[in-house]
């Protein structure tokens, strides 16, 4: 057996014999104390960290957060959802019954009853407008005659 092998064997034996070496808890504490004593700021912070490790929120905290979040959903600024909201609110809109007839009157050449009514509406409107204008003229003429008569009566009374 060579010298080198002997050394290797010895080291191997030492390694095996010292494999189970563990520091005592006391040593760990003492070491930590020394380390922490050298760094008082870090030591204080570590201790405060330990003292606050068990902090935990109450069960009601989650409910409060969810209430705020769901509230914020309701109050959320108008975005893409606004279109969906408008769509929902306007989903029941329906045209009046005459709407379809009016459209058909424009597009269909054939005559329906309502189509005929629509077509006859234009001359009716012209007649009505003419009549209204005539009424205005007659009324204006009557007023003018009344004013002239009043002036004549007043002049006669003055002369008497």
């Amino acid at each position: 057996m060579g010298k080198g092998q002997e050394v290797d064997d010895k080291l191997g034996a030492i390694a095996a014999a010292t494999e189970d070496l563990r520091p005592s808890d006391e040593l760990t504490r003492a070491t930590l104390d020394r380390v922490l004593a050298a760094e008082p700021v870090e030591s204080s912070l570590l201790q405060l960290g330990d003292a606050t490790r068990a902090i935990a929120p109450a069960d009601t905290f989650t409910d409060a957060v969810m209430a705020r979040i769901l509230g914020s959903v309701a109050d959320a600024p108008v975005g893409d959802d606004a279109f969906a909201s408008i769509a929902a609110r306007t989903a029941h809109l329906r045209p009046q019954d005459g709407f379809t007839d009016a459209i058909m009157a424009e597009v269909a050449p054939g005559g329906t009853l309502s189509d005929g009514i629509l077509r006859s509406a234009r001359p009716s409107l012209l007649v009505a407008a003419f009549a209204a204008a005539a009424c205005l003229v007659v009324s204006w003429l009557a007023e003018r005659d009344y004013a002239q008569e009043s002036m004549a009566v007043t002049a006669a009374e003055v002369s008497e």
Binding site: S44, L48, A51, T52, A54, I55, A58
Partner: peptide
């Protein structure tokens, strides 16, 4: 919503 916050933890937070 004060949960599990011991008196010790409260003091530590203040410190």
């Amino acid at each position: 919503f004060d949960g599990l916050v011991s008196a010790e933890a409260r003091v530590a937070l203040r410190e």
